[in-house]
């Protein structure tokens, strides 16, 4: 997998993260939404550790 592929993967991960963060804001009075999005964001962080962090290394 080359650097360009990693950038594409990272871009999709950031898109998921943005959507999840928007959902979390919308769910401030909706525990089932807010708490599940929090867990989703923890999984997104694992995607960042596995892909995004290294995509930024030259």
């Amino acid at each position: 997998m080359n650097a360009k592929d990693l950038k594409v993967l990272d871009s999709k991960i950031q898109s998921i993260k943005k959507t999840a963060e928007e959902l979390k804001k919308m769910g401030e009075d909706f525990p089932a939404l807010s708490r599940n999005v929090s867990r989703l964001l923890a999984s997104v962080k694992m995607l960042e550790l596995n892909v995004s962090d290294v995509a930024g290394i030259k």
Binding site: M1, L6, N50, V51, D53, V54, G56, I57, K58
Partner: peptide, 20 residues
């Protein structure tokens, strides 16, 4: 498990470690 990180050249691993 991670074909990118587990085969990354050592100098890149060191750069990643420093940033992290």
């Amino acid at each position: 498990w991670n074909p990118v990180l587990e085969t990354l050249a050592h100098e890149k691993v060191r750069k990643l470690q420093l940033e992290k």
